[in-house]
């Protein structure tokens, strides 16, 4: 079964759940409706034999509506075929259904998305932060979170400060000059 055929099979079984499909270099992606994620996921695993969830990633399309997007990268070991499921998640959505009982590897991927993007998952067994510490008040991969960070303080656990992004020996100057002129070692140290 090819990637194309699996999409067709998916569209037949869930005629109103598949919003649109795209193809890029032989790999198929399809956008699905959020409220039937688990049905589609179970079908992909059991009927289409996508037995391997490679990764779950999330995108912040800041300024658009719906704001977030979650991508499930699937792979079928028996058919050697990739499939990507996309899920649009509006900002006001309380939580997305978990798929950890369908693909156990989703457990940590969903924790990472919760940690970095702040999207919660219904029915997740252990939805704690995975990279930052419990109690860190921000979601750093959101587009409205500044690169230099925000100050925070948790006594005896951790603190953060705002990072200086200009000056210093490791910052490349923003200009149209060649990289030789822009890069730190080409400049004399600032005294």
């Amino acid at each position: 079964m090819t990637s194309q055929e699996s999409i067709e099979s998916l569209s037949r079984s869930f005629p109103d759940k598949i919003q649109h499909t795209t193809e890029f270099r032989g790999e198929m992606s399809c956008t699905i409706v959020a409220n039937d994620l688990r049905g589609v996921a179970k079908f992909c695993r059991d009927e289409l034999l996508f037995d391997y969830l490679i990764d779950i990633t999330s995108i912040d399309n800041f300024g658009e509506d719906p704001r977030f997007e979650i991508l499930y990268h699937l792979y079928s070991m028996p058919h050697a075929v990739h499939l990507r499921l996309k899920l649009k998640v509006p900002e006001e959505t309380e939580a997305v259904d978990t798929v950890f009982d369908i693909w156990p590897t989703a457990n940590w991927h969903e924790r990472e998305i919760y940690d970095m993007m702040g999207i919660k998952f219904n029915g997740h067994p252990d939805l704690r932060r995975i990279l930052m510490w419990d109690g860190y008040p921000f979601f750093p991969l959101r587009k409205d979170f500044p690169l230099e960070g925000l100050p925070s303080e948790m006594p005896d656990v951790a603190f953060t400060k705002v990072t200086p992004l200009e000056g210093g020996p490791f910052v490349t100057l923003p200009s149209t000059a060649t990289s030789k002129d822009r890069e730190p070692r080409a400049r004399p140290p600032e005294l």
Binding site: P140, T163, L165, F170
Partner: peptide, 21 residues
Amino acid sequence: GACASTGGMYRSYAVLQGIDQ
């Protein structure tokens, strides 16, 4: 090394900018 001294190339929300803080 650069990271322990100043944060090095990691000008980021997650990295302490020098252990001397």
